[in-house]
Design a protein around this nucleic acid. Sequence first.
DNA 1: TTTATTTCACCCTAAACGGGTGAAAATTTT
DNA 2: AAAATTTTCACCCGTTTAGGGTGAAATAAA
Lengths: 208, 208
Amino acid sequence: MERDIKIVIIEDDETIRTGYTFLIGNTDGYDVVNAYASYDEAAHHLVADRPDVILLDIELPGTNGIEALPKIKKMLPHCYVLILTVYESQKQIFDALANGASGYLTKGTPAVKIIESIKEVKEGGGPMSVNIARMVISSFMKNQDSPLSKRETQILELVVEGKSRSQIAKELFIDLETVRSHIKNIYLKLDVNSRADAIKTAKENKLI
Amino acid sequence: MERDIKIVIIEDDETIRTGYTFLIGNTDGYDVVNAYASYDEAAHHLVADRPDVILLDIELPGTNGIEALPKIKKMLPHCYVLILTVYESQKQIFDALANGASGYLTKGTPAVKIIESIKEVKEGGGPMSVNIARMVISSFMKNQDSPLSKRETQILELVVEGKSRSQIAKELFIDLETVRSHIKNIYLKLDVNSRADAIKTAKENKLI
DNA sequence: TTTATTTCACCCTAAACGGGTGAAAATTTT
DNA sequence: AAAATTTTCACCCGTTTAGGGTGAAATAAA
């Protein structure tokens, strides 16, 4: 017989917190060991709670969710964290994922769906709403109409890797002066005059 | 009344190709306009086919799926491409997403699920299997136990942005020599002796 | 109370950078 | 076939940067 999945909820809105606590807690196989209104309040209890999964709000008083994530991961490395939020901003999602969140759910998600997500997360998957998946995908998409030629893009990619002209020349079997020429053209097209600015502009416009 | 979703299948395995063609084609609202065994074969017909969604195999004879993707996107900018493959390698998935794929499905996925995914894609979402979502997430995760200190990591991040010592010094309001000192320590810890190698090692170990 | 981190200093040389200008060969587009 | 773009290389110039060595003081953390 399987052990219950132990859950901790960290969410400042009392209605949402007690609501989810009740709904999830009354589901077979799920045990809400504790529910807190802030990370600062939860911090001292988390290790003792030994949760398998934490539902974590981003907009929290005091330490917010993004700041809390690495702290939680340090205390409980094997604990899965599901972010719960109202906003679906790209930066927020990325920060959360980059800081070790296992998944991302928007508030208003029906409890049934959340319960399902918790199970999926425990079983090794990671729930992502289609909207979020889409954002992740779009963030990987290169700009289709880049002002740079193929060769220039290729060289810019090596510049991004921190390589010097001579290293690039060796790698592409072309002359140092040719690399120089390409980089000059890249600067012209991007209207910059340094590697750092070229990288910045290129990333902003998703040319790389 | 809605128009049927027009689908093109590009898949070299005849069993899979005809199987999916039959199953999807016989579903209300879905119209498989054509099915090809390779991209090279499909290339001349795609524009005339005017598909809304393409199911694209990666392992194809001749032009493979990854190579085909940008060509397809150029011909049909508003067409969604769903990658269909047996392997779930991280690099492959990333290449596909980066080249404009709208989603990613593993072969053996039941036709019902594929039909559902096609619909989701058309409606603006993007289907990702939990395993793939997980890989995407894990790729965003920073290594929790980095040998680098906070300041060193911060400086390495600026190095990755192509910034020079003096630019970094200005940005962090510290002396040029201090930046130098940090970079030296980074090199020591990562056992490298150039920016390019530091960036490479840091990325390999997910320190940034 | 050791250890690690963050800060700064000064020695040095070779390499890399960026601006300017020009031009031939190969591709691609028109 | 002609025009435009891309890719390749050349040589002028001065300034900045990079990386190695060595040392050390002030904080902060273990």
